[in-house]
Design a protein around this nucleic acid. Structure first.
Ligand SMILES: [Zn+2]
Ligand SMILES: [Zn+2]
Ligand SMILES: [Zn+2]
Ligand SMILES: [Zn+2]
Ligand SMILES: [Zn+2]
Ligand SMILES: [Zn+2]
Length: 1059
DNA sequence: GAGTTTGAAACT
DNA sequence: CAGTTTCAAACTC
């Protein structure tokens, strides 16, 4: 379209028919500012293509033209703004991008180690990098070390990954890039034309030769300087005592075979335990490949709930795949239904399928014409109140009712009837704010109880009686040849890190664990070590002291430290002889006294609360977020006119797409407005949507999937999709009011977590970990310091543990998710390379000889069950226990059992105790507790976070707003009562009288502890607070008594942590 | 050509 | 960024 003013013709133009691509820039400087120097015309790049942008207006990098730095020409774009006539806008947007990243328009392919490679690498998940979806493949280069693709086949040697991929490029590109031919050129696997994107990948289209600007200009960029464009980090601000929260995504998928292997392994362990307690010298500690520890007598007892811990499958991946469910079901684990929330997007033939997935369950067939085969097993289960109702959990002793089913029969809401008939058989257990699809609560309960019984008889003490292996002599530097360590030697004194995040956080935690052990070791030389610092705290409150004293009955303030032979860091590598540390009869790892006697310590660090993520709650609840203004307008129009109505008369898209500042905004200005004076009152419509029964989703695809899964007919499916859009629009219109009044059954912001991790806000781990580190090293004498706001580093707790112990302790990381394991392996590999480098620098080492370092492995395994894996000097878990729901105590017990005498188990747990059951019971079983206090702005904020993003989210969804409103009222009343009580008890302040709701002690802020007390109080009735301290029953009784005891408990725990 | 799948850009 | 939504091209049928 654009006419050449100067008519430069480089002669490179490939086709006369194609209009010339017009670059903006005279110079090929990708980072250069766009100004009037742009070349108004130039020859088109050989590979330049036309775009077909419909919405981006060709002013986003979505647009290949814009990305390539040329004006649109002969493109099929709609309402294109990437034209000479809109050049100011173009340059403005371009500069905006350049401001974000100087390399925004730089080639994505650069010279790497002598070869061409994609600069940032690809992250292909499903295309195996042999489709042009993959930017590497599209650019005709091999994937390289920067890639994080899965099952990549874009590698030399037929998919065998090389240390770094050897790039290869087509001769055409060689020429274009003016590079010498690659030595890998002959391996060219690709003989196709580059896509339209290729031009962008390789930078701006070729300049006319006369300019003397080789496209290679881009090659001078990058090379270490490349920094990934970071969008506004917009980190929440948090003051002292507050924790930063952020969201994250990690590969949590669990493969069926991994689960099967984990189960088989546990089967074997159980069989060994049954056949005789002596058999196993500690059991195998799991080498690479994680085979069953031993092929013990075939055919152990049939796998039952008690024999394994599928709960970890949820912890590691929420049982995201149908395969997991199938495996669990086949294993007889009491899974009653099955479903899949694996669906990510789309409903196509292979949607949601994992490679090699077996086809199992076929949902109601959907849609005519090609859609019949659509595969949508199950669906989003988590937020469905009906599911929660239908599966009350009999586990928690009080009344036998699910916390969320309220005694098995919901008194509120829709009466607990399945919304959708029998098809809602899949069992869902709310796991305290975390979704635990596929396992009913009673199945979990049965598993946990059976596991408890089984371990009580069979496995208990097995590891403590195992013989610890002597430490190998210290390595003299460098790292031995890979694999030199071979298998983990009989697990002796190895370190088992049962981590929930393979490469996440935990650095400091690892230091803490190791440092704590070292500290013990040092003191151990004198034969004794103080292990129970909690006991020596003295309080000014006599009543509290009495409580503490009572609490610690039977738990000596300090216990003799067992010989430190097995403590990490022991330089001489002693041997803890079998029998010497056999636990006493009836040893219960969950009882502190027992652990103290056995010299086993368990520490739990618990952040204080769910988090001040802002009044609007965590992003998962970003009700009004998302949706373009245009879509919102469209949906609003549709809402007015009916789902199937045309959207004529809607807002003109152009102004809608322009942000408030006139700049282009993908999401528009955020305001929903109508082209004309609408004048209508939409509140009724808003209410209608918000109060619609069942599950409303914002994400159209997910909504449609749900409809499919529910067996609704096609019009309803389409309506569901539309409803999602409408919901978005209406929520936008409703604004804060709607956000403050979440409707029953709505899963705000739901969308696409199905196949990945459900969005939750979590405390950023680094501050916690640092805090705990300090605590473990040096018990605080004062209030905790303000948390650092440094983000968590990419954690490598395995590596750190390994290094901490001088490479002389075998370290095993466990996660059931292979994705997490591969992350860990990446870290391990980097560590090894670093070690190798250090070894080479240190050199002076004769080849060969030299002691090898202990193995360091990450294996796919069930981290919740360490039976057969001990004894371990350290067991560490970061954010793992909390995901194990009601079975958390069993997991904790398993970890404790796996500890060698003198060992240390460190657990980072979230969220706070707000109920008497579930993971929070771990609070009563710890030797040291560090609790982080949160600040809350108001009762409302606390309640909102608790019920929308926190542990009571599931309850809210299950019981509905009416019930929650009731609870809210009781909560407020209870809070008032507690405040008054505490005030009265604390001092005769002359009738501080009534404390206004939301008003607390400090700064007009409510007291988080009291609020949590109140929350705990109103949890399910008088008998619920079954509070144990050191194994002795501490709570119960009527409301008042429970109030008192609970308050004491909370204080006690707090003080214990603060010490 | 219509509908689906895909991975990266855009956004908060 | 232990995140989500939108996008246009690639892909499939
Ligand atoms: Zn375009
Ligand atoms: Zn274009
Ligand atoms: Zn255009
Ligand atoms: Zn790729
Ligand atoms: Zn790649
Ligand atoms: Zn690849």
């Amino acid at each position: 379209m654009k006419k050449s003013k100067r008519g430069h013709d480089s002669g490179l133009e490939s086709t006369g028919a194609a209009a010339a691509a017009v670059p903006y820039m005279l110079e090929g400087a990708y980072g250069g500012g766009a100004d009037e120097d742009y070349q108004e015309d130039a020859a088109p790049a050989a590979g330049s293509k036309r775009c077909n942008c419909k919405k981006a207006r060709c002013l986003k990098l979505y647009c290949v033209c814009f990305a390539a730095g040329v004006y649109c020409s002969s493109c099929a774009c709609v309402e294109c703004l990437n034209t000479l006539g809109t050049q100011e806008l173009v340059l403005k947007e371009r500069n905006k991008k350049l401001q974000q990243s100087p390399w925004a328009f730089a080639p994505k392919v650069e010279q790497k180690e002598g070869e061409l490679a994609h600069k940032k690498g690809c992250r292909c998940r499903r295309s195996r990098c042999i489709k042009k979806y993959c930017e590497c493949y599209d650019a005709q280069v091999f994937c390289n070390a920067a890639c994080r693709c899965e099952a990549c086949r874009n590698m030399p040697e037929g998919g065998i990954a090389a240390p770094h991929a050897i790039p290869h490029i087509a001769a055409q590109q060689q020429q274009q890039l003016q590079l010498p031919p690659s030595r890998a050129q002959q391996q060219l696997p690709h003989s196709r034309a580059p896509s339209a994107n290729a031009a962008a990948l390789f930078g701006a289209p070729a300049q006319p030769a006369g300019l003397g600007l080789g496209p290679m200009a881009g090659a001078t960029f990058g090379d270490g300087l490349v920094k990934r464009a970071s969008y506004g980090t917009a980190q929440l601000s948090y003051g002292p005592g507050q924790l930063p929260y952020r969201a994250a995504q990690l590969p949590y998928d669990v493969r069926a075979e991994d689960l099967e292997a984990a189960l088989a392994r546990q089967r074997t362990v159980a069989a060994q335990a049954d056949s005789g307690p002596s058999g196993s010298s500690g059991g195998g500690a799991g080498g690479a490949g994680e085979p069953p520890p031993r092929a013990a007598g075939r055919g152990g007892p049939p796998l039952g709930p008690g024999r394994s811990s599928v709960v970890a499958a949820m912890g590691a991946g929420y049982g995201d795949s149908l395969e997991v469910l199938d495996a669990a079901q086949e294993a007889g684990l009491g899974v009653r239904g099955r479903g899949r929330n694996q669906q990510v997007r789309g409903l196509g033939p292979d949607a949601g399928r994992l490679p090699g997935a077996s086809d199992g369950f076929h949902p109601p067939q959907h849609a005519p014409g090609g859609a019949a085969d659509k595969h949508c097993d199950g669906g989003p289960l988590y937020d469905n109140p009906a599911l929660l109702y239908d599966n009350p959990a009999p586990m928690h002793g009080n009344g036998g009712g699910s916390l969320y089913g309220n005694g098995g029969g919901p008194p509120h809401g829709n009466g607990g009837r399945p919304l959708h008939g029998d098809r809602l058989e899949p069992a869902v257990g709310p796991s305290y704010g975390m979704p635990t699809a596929f396992m009913s609560m009673d199945a979990i309960a049965a598993a946990a109880q059976a596991a408890s019984a089984a371990t009580a008889s069979g496995l208990r003490g097995q590891h403590l009686g195992a013989r610890a292996e002597p430490l190998p002599p210290p390595a003299s530097g460098g790292l031995a040849a890979p694999g030199a360590g071979g298998d983990i030697p009989a697990a002796g004194g190895s370190v088992a890190a049962a981590f929930g995040g393979a490469s996440f956080g935990g650095d400091e935690m690892a230091r803490a664990a190791g440092g704590m052990a070292l500290e013990q070791q040092g003191e151990g030389a004198s034969g004794r070590v103080e292990r129970e610092r909690v006991a020596r705290r003295s309080s000014s409150d006599p009543e509290e002291d009495a409580a503490v004293a009572a609490a610690q009955r039977g738990a000596p303030a300090s216990v003799p430290c067992p010989p430190a032979d097995d403590l990490p860091g022991a330089a001489t590598g002693g041997v803890a002889t079998a029998g010497e540390h056999l636990p006493p009869e009836g040893f219960d790892p969950l009882r502190r006294a027992d652990r103290a006697a056995a010299g086993v310590a368990v520490g739990v660090m618990a952040p204080g609360a769910v988090g001040a993520a802002g009044l609007r709650g965590p992003p998962a609840l970003g009700i009004a977020a998302g949706g373009t203004a245009a879509a919102a307008a469209e949906a609003a129009a549709a809402a007015r006119q009916g789902p199937q109505q045309p959207t004529a008369g809607r807002l003109d898209p152009l102004p809608a797409a322009l942000g408030a500042d006139g700049g282009l905004s993908q999401y528009g200005s955020g305001e929903l407005s109508y082209g004309g004076d609408d004048g209508e009152d939409h509140s009724a419509l808003v209410d209608a949507v918000l109060q619609a029964p069942g599950l409303l989703l914002q994400d159209p695809e997910r909504a449609e999937q749900l409809a499919v899964w529910l067996g609704l007919d096609v019009p309803q499916q389409l309506a569901a999709r539309k409803a999602a859009q409408i919901l978005t629009a209406l929520l936008q219109m409703a604004g804060a009011a709607a956000a403050a009044r979440p409707a029953q059954g709505i899963a705000p912001g739901g969308s696409k977590w199905c196949g990945r991790r459900p969005p939750t806000m979590q405390p950023a781990p680094a501050p916690l970990v640092q805090q705990t580190s300090r605590t473990l090293h040096h018990p605080p004498t004062a209030a905790p310091e303000p948390h650092s706001r440094d983000p968590a580093s990419q954690g490598h707790e395995l590596v750190l543990l390994h290094a901490l112990f001088g490479g002389r302790r075998a370290v095993v990381g466990l996660d059931l998710s292979h994705g997490m394991i591969s992350l860990a392996e990446r870290a391990i590999q980097a560590y090894r390379q670093q070690q190798q480098l250090l070894g080479q620098q240190a050199q002076a080492r004769p080849a060969g000889a030299g002691p090898s370092l202990a193995p360091l492995d990450a294996v796919v395994a069930d981290a919740s069950c360490l039976d057969g894996r001990g004894p371990a000097a350290v067991v560490m878990s970061v954010f793992g226990l909390q995901q194990m729901g009601s079975a958390a105590p069993q997991a904790l017990a398993s970890w404790a059992r796996a500890l060698a005498p003198g060992g240390v188990c460190v657990v980072v747990l979230w969220p706070p105790r707000v109920e008497a059951a579930g993971p929070w019971t771990a609070y009563e079983q710890v030797d040291r507790l560090q609790r982080h206090k949160m600040e809350w702005e108001s009762l409302d904020q606390f309640w909102q976070v608790m019920t929308e993003g926190g542990p009571w989210r599931a309850r809210r969804l299950a019981q509905g707003d009416a019930a929650m409103a009731d609870l809210r009222a009781r909560f407020a009343a209870k809070y008032d009562a507690l405040v008054a009580e505490y005030d009265g008890a604390g001092a005769e302040q002359g009738g501080s009288g009534r404390v206004e709701e939301g008003q607390g002690q400090l700064d007009g802020r409510p007291d988080g502890d009291v609020m949590q007390d109140a929350l705990l109080e109103i949890t399910g009735g008088r008998s619920v607070p079954r509070v144990f301290i050191n194994g002795s029953f501490f709570g119960g009784g009527d409301d008042t008594a429970a109030a008192a005891s609970n308050g004491k408990l909370q204080k006690l725990l707090t003080e214990a942590g603060a010490l």
